[in-house]
């Protein structure tokens, strides 16, 4: 089908216990990660989580202070950015402001001393590929943000790098344009088969684009997995809360929440909280195994559905979505209700 269908096979890049210290500050700690050829890997995390640092280490723009990096089995730890030969799309694009679109794209090719004819061909091809035909002779300043982004992509891909690194490429774009560029990026990835490593702090963007997501926090790798893996089975509380909305309930005693007995998932031993995504929670009906009494604090009408804000007897907040198409009357604020979920949709954190 689409990029999801790409078979993750041979390891192209491997990070082994990579760390980066600035003075006494650990920007990255002990990162071990394998990147497969042709995959679309997102490095996701809040700002200051180390994701961009990891990207600059991968690209060879900075040196790791510990650990090793391998490219197709060769130790590339000491290689310069140029020796690694990856394409890079910088945050803010870093286009040459004094050069035209065509000259920007041609720059890396000129450095490689390709023939004039070859360069002209390749530039025309790239301009076509990113949909900038007719803008070849404009300077970056005369282009919109989205167009500058396309130039940056074309320049980074012009010399057919094995790996393309992208540092928050869409952070400066408005929401509509962002969606459009995401589509574009998926198409490019599909057509080229190049490995993409993509830094973002936008969870939805990561979930929508990637074949795998690596989640960073405080310079440490929290979890790596496919979008549904990290969303459905987060490895820890940070991942659970960082990716989308989630209800977190404190467990008291061996198997209960605020005095109500419930069924716990298999991993609950030793963990103090239970997590359930809002879309897995519903208002309880007869026969539901896991039921919890709650009070409706507020409801927000969202068109096709409503968002209910609930409070447990222990005072913890819950959220769930109610389908407005069922014809059932929505409960009134202050109503005493019961919520339910299936035990396999819950996980302990």
């Amino acid at each position: 089908m689409k990029s999801e269908a790409i078979v993750v096979n041979t390891t192209q890049i491997e990070a082994r216990s990579v760390g980066k210290k600035y003075g006494k500050f650990h920007a990255l700690r002990d990162i071990s990660l394998e990147i497969a050829e042709g995959e679309f890997l997102s490095l996701l995390g809040p700002s200051g989580s180390g994701k961009t640092t990891f990207l600059t280490l991968l690209g060879g723009y900075e040196d790791a202070t510990s650990g090793k990096l391998f490219l197709e089995g060769h130790d590339m730890t000491g290689w310069t950015a140029n020796q690694r030969g990856f394409g890079m799309v910088f945050q803010g694009y870093a286009l040459f402001p004094h050069l035209t679109v065509a000259e920007n794209i041609a720059f890396p090719l000129k450095v490689q001393k390709r023939s004039k004819a070859q360069i002209a061909d390749r530039v025309a091809q790239m301009v076509e590929m990113v949909g900038l035909a007719g803008h070849e002779n404009k300077k970056p300043k005369a282009l919109s943000g989205g167009q500058q982004q396309r130039v940056a992509l074309a320049r980074a891909l012009a010399y057919e790098p094995k790996v393309l690194l992208l540092d928050e490429p869409f952070s400066a774009l408005d929401k509509n344009l962002r969606g459009q560029m995401q589509e574009e990026l998926r198409r490019l990835h599909r057509e080229l088969g190049t490995t993409f490593v993509f830094v973002t702090h936008d969870q939805e963007e990561a979930l929508a684009l990637s074949s795998r997501i690596a989640i960073f926090n405080h310079g440490e790798l929290q979890q790596v997995g496919t979008p549904d893996e990290v969303y459905e089975r987060p490895a820890n509380r940070f991942t659970a809360e960082f990716l989308g909305d989630i209800n977190i309930l404190t467990l008291d005693g061996p198997a209960g929440i605020a005095g109500t007995a419930i069924h716990l998932p298999g991993n609950a031993a030793g963990l103090g909280h239970l997590a359930v995504r809002p879309e897995h929670m519903r208002l309880a009906s007869e026969g539901d195994a896991n039921q919890l009494p709650v009070r409706l604090r507020d409801k927000v009408y969202l068109g096709s559905k409503s968002r209910l804000l609930l409070e447990t007897q222990g005072g913890e907040e819950l959220m769930l979505y109610l389908d407005n198409g069922t014809g059932l009357a929505a409960p009134q604020t202050g109503a005493e209700l019961r919520v339910a979920w299936d035990v396999q949709d819950s996980f302990a954190v």
Binding site: A81, F90, L95
Partner: peptide
């Protein structure tokens, strides 16, 4: 001058001389 532009040129394998003459100097024109 945006430091990232120079980093980008360096990453593409441009020599220091080329970066100076073809990037830094024109950017400070």
């Amino acid at each position: 001058v945006d430091e990232r532009v120079l980093t980008a040129a360096d990453g593409m394998g441009a020599s220091r001389l080329r970066i100076f003459w073809q990037v830094f100097l024109p950017m400070t024109a």
